[in-house]
């Protein structure tokens, strides 16, 4: 009876990468402002990671349109009550923040750093927005499960934070360690985000009750429990607590968190459309 929007893999990727972009930028700005000079590498990686991701997000969003050449029509109106409308605007504004922050992250002059920190604090708002609005976008539809999920935005935000932090730590791992480069603090923040995400997920499911059937039963249940809960949250948390002094273990855990973040978007978007 009700119709689904036929949002498929491009939208899943957009939701996933947008979450990482928002989470990475937020982590960078917090590290920049509260961590000080010892976390400069975290800040720079976070800023530099969010920039291309936002660009990819924009491309995905445009390509997914029925008439991609009309993408600028999104900017014909501004509806503050409409997630799709403010989402398009916010993606553009956030893109500017990631660009400016990335450029400024190469400077070591005191005044530039002070400016970058302030810009980062404002940019966080847009990063958080990008990570969470996609959840609210789904919950503000007429479709069951999506519209029943009061915590969809909150859950996407928590996942965006944990995947953003995981992505930063993974890049730090791949580009080689440096003493005092903030790895431990990113990991600590990521552990907190993952625990918080688990709590939000539990409340999300409890509030949904039987409305969560699309992800709790049928073909998506195994992916949800096995892929997101076990592989994407529980195993990385165990790895973090058991072996968080070993960077290789931390890197494995980061990969699993990213896999889990992707599965979350995939399961939520695809389950009621199949």
């Amino acid at each position: 009876m009700l119709k689904t929007p036929h949002w498929e893999m491009m939208v899943v990727w957009y939701f996933f990468l947008g979450g990482i972009a928002g989470g990475a930028y937020f982590t960078a700005a917090i590290a920049d402002n509260f961590g000080g000079s010892r976390d400069r590498r975290v800040a720079q990686i976070g800023y530099l990671l969010s920039l291309p991701l936002v660009a990819i997000c924009g491309v995905l969003l445009i390509l997914d349109l029925g008439v991609p050449l009309r993408f600028l029509n999104m900017l014909r109106s501004f509806k503050f009550w409409d997630p799709m409308s403010i989402g398009a605007w916010a993606l553009g504004v956030f893109g500017l923040f990631t660009l400016v922050s990335s450029v400024l992250s190469f400077s070591s002059s005191e005044s530039t750093i002070a400016l970058r920190r302030k810009i980062g604090l404002v940019g966080i708002l847009f990063g958080f927005f990008l990570a969470s609005y996609t959840g609210v976008l789904l919950s503000a539809t007429a479709l069951p499960f999506w519209s029943d999920a009061r915590l969809m935005g909150a859950l996407f935000l928590a996942s965006g934070a944990s995947t953003g932090m995981a992505a930063i730590s993974l890049i730090m791992f791949a580009t080689g360690a440096g003493s005092g480069d903030g790895w431990g603090r990113v990991k600590k923040a990521d552990r907190f985000s993952m625990i918080f995400e688990l709590v939000v997920l539990a409340v999300f499911l409890a509030l949904l009750g039987s409305a969560a059937r699309p992800i709790l039963s049928g073909q998506f249940a195994a992916l949800f429990w096995g892929g997101l809960v076990v592989v994407g949250l529980l195993i990385p948390l165990v790895l973090e607590f058991v072996g968080h002094r070993m960077r290789a273990v931390g890197a494995v855990s980061a990969v699993l968190v990213l896999v889990g973040g992707f599965i979350l978007r995939y399961v939520v978007v695809m389950s009621i459309q199949s």
């Binding site: 009876m1 009700l2 119709k3 689904t4 036929h6 949002w7 997914d64 009309r70 014909r76 999506w146």
Partner: peptide, 17 residues
Amino acid sequence: VCNGCRYCVSSCPFGVV
């Protein structure tokens, strides 16, 4: 003007669009 984002499709309480 429509650019085919399909948000209206999922926002109709009657499955019309």
